[in-house]
Design a protein around this nucleic acid. Sequence first.
DNA 1: ATAGTCCGTTTGTATGACAAATGATTCGGG
DNA 2: CCCGAATCATTTGTCATACAAACGGACTAT
Lengths: 242, 242
Amino acid sequence: MKKPIAVRSLYGHVMHELGQRIVSGKVKPGEILPREETLAESLQVSRTALREALKVLSAKGLIESRTGVGARVLEERYWNQLDADVLAWRCASMPTDDFVDKLVEMREIIEPAAAAAAARRRTAPQLAAIEEAYNAMDAAQTLDEWSHADLLFHDAVLHATGNELMQSLFSVIETALGTFFTLSARNAGNFKYSLPYHQKVLEAIRRKQPEVARKTMQSMIVDSHTNLQRSRSSRTRKKASA
Amino acid sequence: MKKPIAVRSLYGHVMHELGQRIVSGKVKPGEILPREETLAESLQVSRTALREALKVLSAKGLIESRTGVGARVLEERYWNQLDADVLAWRCASMPTDDFVDKLVEMREIIEPAAAAAAARRRTAPQLAAIEEAYNAMDAAQTLDEWSHADLLFHDAVLHATGNELMQSLFSVIETALGTFFTLSARNAGNFKYSLPYHQKVLEAIRRKQPEVARKTMQSMIVDSHTNLQRSRSSRTRKKASA
DNA sequence: ATAGTCCGTTTGTATGACAAATGATTCGGG
DNA sequence: CCCGAATCATTTGTCATACAAACGGACTAT
């Protein structure tokens, strides 16, 4: 789930700006950022605000500051790739096909297992939350309403596993679904095509049938991936004919 | 893999102290921390250092600072549970059996899938890295050497998936294995008992046999979980007889 | 050639000041 | 008496400045 507040403070803007520069590759791993005073000046903020941004970027594993040397951009293997901000920055410009595939692979690993665990252990209120999300999906009139309810559904399933480590993976699912909605926005005709899948998952979790839940969730993801590839190839064709 | 530097600066100490207080439950979600000036004084640091610690804790989703109100501890669902620090704080005092089970569940979901993906896509250098780790495990004389090599092995497998999102889950495996080594330190007699499993995983990845790799990894985790439960029940018995 | 020392550079920490936002309190009108 | 609006105290947000500490390269003496 999203953090309560999403407003960006001054330091937030700076962090966003620098984070995006790093993730997008405008500054590459190994490079040293300009010294704090210079950076602060070029970004029009005080050194204090800049330093808070650098501290957070450092916590996300993007940079490492050392006395007397400066802030070095770390290699990608040190990046906190599951961090919601890092994921968002990678999707800021149109995400690579390659990256989309990786997101889907993560979903294929996480969500079927989560659905199975939820079917085994869900409590009544957890089931109710899933059902509520499903009903919202059913009632959705616009793509926006649908995508919001869809996120709620998948979050509720993760929550129903009763394993909070699982739920922290929501950032990955959120990014994957967000990308999917963006890419498939043009063929918005039948955005509710996956509703039956969701219903089957809900039913399997209600009836405590782990393997049914797992397989159905698996099918849903594979299916949505297929759809994505279709819209991807049409995009390619469009590009080639242009 | 660990970050290059592990030394703790002043702000690091403060962050560690406050983070542990929150994760351990000494201050509970919903509570407001003392005002910055007071906190800084009681921790013997300047407000500057304190604020950097608070910013990072805020980035980890543990707290939320609001002007005129103070820093509120957020509910656990907002915590960045996969963060290496948060995981470490949860294990700081002897981890709950409940938490260990959750770690194992994550391993059961992640690692078999990772082993399968690695068997499908590993490059020659990636395989070499896994093999090197295996050889180090084989040659290990002490529990320390073994655990270090073991971490390298599992990290190399994650790396061989070619999916960097996968590799960021290493923090979970690291914490799980670390806990395992701690809990099973007393019966350190045959700490190398899982070597054959590792060999089979290595071979399956070498021969590009995804399903063999998946199943073997799965068995290894189940087996180590069984071992853990054994040492856990002996601990319980000891406690009961005391 | 090499080890040790010096020195400039850059981050780390401390301090003091003010701006901005929040929530409670007070005041005024109905 | 009730309710809304202005006011005020409190707390974080941002800025500016100063100095301490660590790092790396240059320089020196052996």
